[in-house]
């Protein structure tokens, strides 16, 4: 054992073997990645569409305007037959158990049309009530910056999750305010 360690040739062989294993593993993973990349992209796309259609209705056409308004989150102008129905902002905030990913839909006047929780890992039985109608419907019709307690009642036992969602909605509202201001100048 000691002798093997001191022999540079053997160390080189060991290193090469390890390198070979690493290279093969990386190759296999890269292969799997390439094969599954399309299916993953489709999942993401489908998920986004379902969320937007859940807020508006089936058949609407979301147009990506993130670059146009210079927002840090993905923003869509939702159109149907050329007429603008409103806006949708896709937002990800840190939740209690992990990221909360949600879609917030707005009318043209900037009031909230609805929110959809796309994914979350909040505590089942407590924090996961953010996906329920009772909690989400509180946001509908509201506009501007919202505060927990004043505009929105927190879910009892899940103040954290409620606060994270409200923070996310506020960020989205700020983005939509920009969109509406831009639309007015045009």
């Amino acid at each position: 054992m000691e002798k093997a360690k001191n022999n540079p040739w053997q160390i080189a062989v060991i290193g090469l073997k390890l390198l070979l294993i690493c290279a093969i593993v990386a190759g296999v993973v890269a292969l799997v990645y390439t094969v599954t990349a399309d299916a993953y992209a489709k999942n993401m796309e489908a998920e986004k569409r379902t969320a937007i259609e859940g807020i508006f209705h089936a058949g609407v056409n979301p147009v990506d305007v993130q670059g146009e308004v210079g927002s840090e989150f993905p923003v869509y102008r939702v159109e149907e037959n050329g007429a603008v129905l409103g806006y949708c902002v896709e937002i990800t905030t840190a939740g209690y158990g992990g990221d909360i990913q949600m879609m917030v839909g707005y009318n043209r006047d900037g009031s909230i049309l609805g929110i959809q929780i796309v994914s979350h890992s909040e505590t089942p039985g407590l924090g996961d009530k953010i996906t329920g109608d009772a909690f989400r419907s509180q946001y509908v019709g509201q506009s501007g910056q919202l505060a927990l307690g004043d505009h929105i009642d927190a879910i009892s036992g899940a103040t954290y999750s409620s606060r994270y969602v409200t923070e996310g909605v506020n960020k989205a509202s700020a983005v939509v305010a920009k969109c509406i201001a831009k639309e007015a100048t045009e």
């Binding site: 690493c22 593993v25 990386a26 993973v29 890269a30 990645y33």
Partner: peptide, 12 residues
């Protein structure tokens, strides 16, 4: 553009 290898890289 190898972000998906992060688990392998981090554990190493």
């Amino acid at each position: 553009k190898l972000e998906y290898l992060k688990t392998v890289a981090f554990i190493l």
